[in-house]
C-alpha cells in the first residue's frame, strides 16, 4: 500500500510535481504494482548473495590519458539557458 502522503514524499525525492489528480491515480496504480511485488517477501533470501552484475567482468579501468574535451559551443548547443559562459539555472538560494 502506498498512500497519498507517501506518493507525495517519493515525488518530492524524485523532483516530480504531481497534480492532485495524479497523486490519487498514482496512489492506486502504485499500490497495485507494489501488491504484485510483495510476492518477493514469500521467499527466504537470508543467505542469498545479491546479483549486481550478471556477467562476471574484472575491473574495467581506464588509463589516465587525456582525450579532447567538447568544444564549448557544442557543450552549450542543447542547453535551455546559457549565460556568462555557463549553464544558467534559477538560484538554489531563491
Amino acid at each position: 500500500m502506498i498512500d497519498r502522503t507517501q506518493v507525495l514524499h517519493v515525488a518530492r525525492l524524485a523532483r516530480l510535481q504531481l497534480t492532485d489528480d495524479e497523486v490519487g491515480r498514482m496512489s492506486t496504480e502504485l499500490s497495485n504494482i507494489l501488491g504484485h511485488i510483495e510476492k518477493l517477501s514469500a521467499l527466504d533470501l537470508t543467505d542469498v548473495e545479491p546479483t549486481t552484475h550478471v556477467v562476471a567482468v574484472g575491473s574495467a579501468l581506464r588509463p589516465d590519458v587525456v582525450r579532447e574535451s567538447l568544444p564549448r559551443e557544442v557543450a552549450f548547443e542543447q542547453a535551455p539557458d546559457i549565460a556568462d559562459d555557463g549553464f544558467r539555472v534559477p538560484s538554489p538560494q531563491a
Binding site: 517519493v10 518477493l40 517477501s41 550478471v54
Partner: peptide, 25 residues
C-alpha cells in the same frame, strides 16, 4: 515513483536488495 520508493530509506533491503537476491536464485 516506484523506483524511488524501492530505493528509499527503510525499503531498500526489502525491495531492491531483495530483488537482486531473487535474481541470483
Amino acid at each position: 515513483l516506484i523506483g524511488t520508493y524501492a530505493l528509499s530509506s527503510g525499503f531498500y533491503d526489502a525491495y531492491y536488495a531483495g530483488a537482486q537476491k531473487v535474481r541470483t536464485l
